[in-house]
């Protein structure tokens, strides 16, 4: 419940050879409840580091993150995470995976079952409840991961390239699902992606980050996510402003990459 404040985060650490890496420098950001922020940037810009700091897996060397006024000190159930792949527990069935969070809290079984039923309906896996997760396709596995995260009813959902390992068609379908879930649940979502299309389509706000040191380069506010809810995503993509913004961002990222290549020589 409430806003996510990222206040002046910096992260700097030493490598074995004695040199230092400035992974993040003075990153500040405020997210209102229910906002969907997508983050883009060339590799090495610190976007995954930022997500891991928000999740509480890494501690910043400077700055604070507050969720609803409380500082973040470690991982917790109010900040759920969806990984690219491989984060499901393959020794558990689909149902056991989804009910994991509530079960760890000690929620009684009947209550858990209601949650599981509802969520599996939402993500379209009603008939796969008792299947082993390794029997599912990649897209279905990510649906389970989304349901598992939602079952815990977190305030913020952090997604680290959740659709990155899927094929193009499945990916498009899953983008629709992410939008639907976002509208339905009103969760605050931070989505890291490599796909400019995906970032534009899903992000109400879009952050372009730059490397060396990792920092926020530019921020956009976009209308496409709202428009795309319940719509054909391809129609939204045909919008001329969509394509203009896409071109602008791609050029921005290309320039950064070129700079990195030049810097290496």
């Amino acid at each position: 419940m409430g806003a996510l404040n990222i206040n002046d985060i910096s992260m700097r650490f030493e490598l074995p050879d004695g040199s230092h890496v400035q992974a993040l420098q003075n990153v500040s950001l405020n997210l209102k409840k229910g906002e969907l922020l997508s983050v883009l940037g060339p590799s090495g810009c610190g976007k995954s580091t930022l997500l891991n700091i928000v999740a509480g897996f890494l501690a910043p060397t400077q700055g604070v993150i507050e969720l609803a006024g409380k500082p973040v000190t470690g991982p917790s159930a109010e900040r759920g995470m969806v990984f690219q792949k491989g984060a499901l527990f393959e020794w558990m069935s689909v149902r056991q995976n989804v009910e994991f969070g509530p079960r760890m809290k000690g929620m009684p079984e009947t209550e858990r079952n209601t949650i599981v039923e509802n969520l599996l309906d939402t993500v379209g896996l009603r008939d796969f409840k008792e299947k082993a997760v390794y029997e599912l396709s990649g897209g279905m596995q990510q649906r389970v991961a989304l349901a598992r995260c939602l079952a815990n009813d977190p305030d913020v959902i952090l997604m680290d390239e959740p659709l990155g390992a899927l094929d193009a068609l499945t990916r498009e379908k899953m983008q629709g699902l992410v939008l639907d879930l976002w509208k339905k649940t009103g969760k605050t979502i931070i989505l890291i992606t490599h796909s400019v299309d995906e970032a534009l389509l899903l992000g109400e706000r879009l952050l372009v980050m730059a490397p060396r040191p990792g920092r926020i380069f530019k921020e956009y506010r976009l209308p496409f996510a709202d428009r795309a809810v319940g719509e054909d995503l391809r129609v939204v993509k045909e919008d001329p402003t969509f394509n203009d913004t896409k071109k602008e961002i791609l050029e921005m990222i290309w320039e950064m990459e070129e700079e990195i290549m030049g810097g290496d020589k």
């Binding site: 999740a55 917790s76 159930a77 995470m81 990984f83 984060a87 994991f100 598992r148 952090l158």
Partner: peptide
Amino acid sequence: NIAKVQAAYALGASKAQVLRY
């Protein structure tokens, strides 16, 4: 896989629960 451990912690599991489950 570190993602599994992190996922469990992010779902609110304690150290003992991460070990067991």
